[in-house]
Write a protein that binds this DNA or RNA. Structure first.
Lengths: 143, 143
DNA sequence: TATTGTTATACTCTATAACTATA
DNA sequence: TATAGTTATAGAGTATAACAATA
């Protein structure tokens, strides 16, 4: 059983799998949105405006990496910088309206992909799988 | 439901998640075994001796990338090159005994991680999840 | 003295384009 | 002429180390 899941995860985590998925998800969304910038958008959508240093651990980059990605997203009009209200060293990264729309579109595309692939499943099985996967990821060997 | 799975997958496919998992899996296995070389080992274990050009599509690299990884694995004693029996242009990449042992150890570690994280699940739910994940990955939006 | 955002630098990994040998 | 393996080169992306400004 552990081996069955291990092999499935191995395939899922393969570079080609991820890249194919990301390409199909970000198609036509502009050059600024890709595998690396999406975590920045996603984290901002999830938690609201944050500073680069604060985002770094969530995104899996250090502050300099967040700065670079944020600059790309800013130039594409998806993110803007605002002065931090209490710390004049910091700047808050904020999703623009276009940024919010981009995140919503990406989440919708992925969800649609998934829903389509579950269409042939018994409804109960699909719902059970969703719950199980959520639990597995949340407190599995990855958290 | 699609959104629940989408968010779980988003976390699973995050770079930090993958890197943490790979680090914990390959700890102490020598410098040659890492996130990039593992797919080469894994593919050879799955399908037997192959040429570099033949492996390329499986591994998600082109032939030059396979060559580089194979050279690293060869220097570490996990892979050896043998002349192709019928095509003198090609070379077969073959797992050495040490290579076989390394693959088995890595699969065992991952399976153990997973089994441990499922220990608290009802046995039926865990088995059902394994089957569902396998199916989802095999003919889901990634295949 | 520590931390923020930013930039320059070095490093890693990749695909592309060559090259030689064989089909 | 095409394909195998290999190597050199260029490109993309990262962390590290610096910098000035603020805490």
């Amino acid at each position: 059983m552990g081996y069955e899941i291990a092999d499935a995860l191995g395939l899922l985590l393969r570079r080609t799998t991820r890249e194919r998925l990301h390409r199909s998800l970000t198609e036509g969304m502009g050059e600024a949105v890709d595998e690396v910038t999406y975590p920045v958008l996603s984290a901002l959508a999830r938690t609201g405006p944050r500073s680069a240093a604060d985002l770094a651990s969530d995104v899996g980059l250090d502050r300099s990496g967040v700065t670079r990605r944020a600059t790309r997203l800013e130039q594409a009009g998806l993110v803007r910088r605002e002065p931090h209200p209490t710390d004049r060293r910091a700047a808050l990264l904020v999703l623009t309206d276009a940024g919010e729309r981009a995140v919503a579109e990406l989440r919708r595309r992925l969800a649609d992909h998934i829903t389509a692939s579950l269409a042939a499943w018994p409804p109960g099985a699909a719902r059970e799988f969703a719950r199980s996967l959520h639990r597995f990821v949340a407190d599995g060997p990855f958290a």
